[in-house]
């Protein structure tokens, strides 16, 4: 234990806003079980009380403390300091995709505006009986409900991060909202159709399934395999599979409820 206390970590933290700023280097004493957010709190308490950082639960459940640690989009409260080599300089940056307010705090309100565009859960109004839902019918949706909206997937998605497809006719809804749409589309009691929205407005076609969203998800949701690709296939059913549509037209079938 005493050996841990004797060690010091070096953190290089971005200080500034979206227009100008600098990286400042701080020395932080290591404690057993310490995470990057603890180190940021130490800096706030001892060197820079004005350092802006958003956090809340410190238990990887609120999704507030998203940042980039040594270039990896991650929750600071889930990134252990003993994960780094002794003496390694730890670079802490804000997430890149959204407008920077100050230091490590970004404005993620764009996401809430995208969310409002998704048709909400729409059950059959004539279905007045008590709902009985079997586990196998809801298991896929339950995985998506684990999302804590940390927006790390939105941040790492290169369509939003590098190609800036956030506004106007080219707006891409991003992996977080494809997960939400998948949870609604696969819900056994939902009757709404979101495929036209997914293709024409959410631009699911911009996703080239390079899986970075899945790699950074702290809840380990299989975003690409279980949400985005199944939605892409549903869009194919509707828009790119004339043979399948013809067969369904002759023999019946299609979307089952």
């Amino acid at each position: 234990m005493s050996e841990h206390k004797a060690k010091e970590a070096t953190l290089k933290v971005y200080r500034g806003d979206g227009k100008e700023g600098k990286f400042e280097t701080y020395k932080v004493p290591m404690e057993a079980g310490m995470v990057v957010l603890d180190a940021i709190h130490y800096i706030q308490a001892n060197y820079a009380p004005e350092l802006a950082v958003r956090w809340n639960c410190k238990a990887a459940k609120c999704g507030s403390c998203s940042a980039e640690v040594n270039g990896h989009p991650s929750l600071m409260c889930k990134t252990r300091m003993d994960h780094f080599e002794d003496g390694e300089e730890i670079v802490v940056q804000p997430i890149k995709t959204f407008p920077l307010i100050k230091d490590l705090v970004t404005d993620v309100s764009w996401n809430y505006r995208v969310n409002e565009k998704i048709k909400p859960f729409t059950p059959d109004e004539s279905d007045t009986k008590e709902w009985v839902i079997y586990q196998e019918d809801i298991e896929r949706v339950q995985e998506f409900r684990k999302c804590i909206e940390c927006f790390l997937c939105q941040n790492v998605c290169h369509v939003l991060r590098d190609h800036e497809k956030k506004d106007g006719n080219e707006q891409f809804m991003g992996p977080r909202f494809l997960v939400r749409a998948a949870g609604l589309e696969m819900h056994p009691k939902d009757t709404a159709d979101r495929l036209e929205y997914l293709k024409e407005e959410g631009h699911i076609g911009y996703c080239n399934i390079t899986k970075c969203c899945t790699e950074v998800c702290p809840e380990e949701i299989h975003i690409t395999d279980n949400a985005i690709i199944p939605l892409k296939e549903r869009v194919v059913d509707e828009y790119y599979d004339p043979l399948g549509k013809m067969i369904k037209g002759i023999f019946g079938g299609g979307k089952k409820k």
Partner: peptide, 24 residues
């Protein structure tokens, strides 16, 4: 505490001056 001013090109964010900060 030491400071390092970031040098950025036009259109580049000062918080992300390099193509990546990944060390792996």
């Amino acid at each position: 505490m030491t400071e390092a001013q970031t040098e950025t090109k036009p259109g580049q964010r000062p918080s992300h001056p390099d193509i990546t900060q990944r060390k792996d």
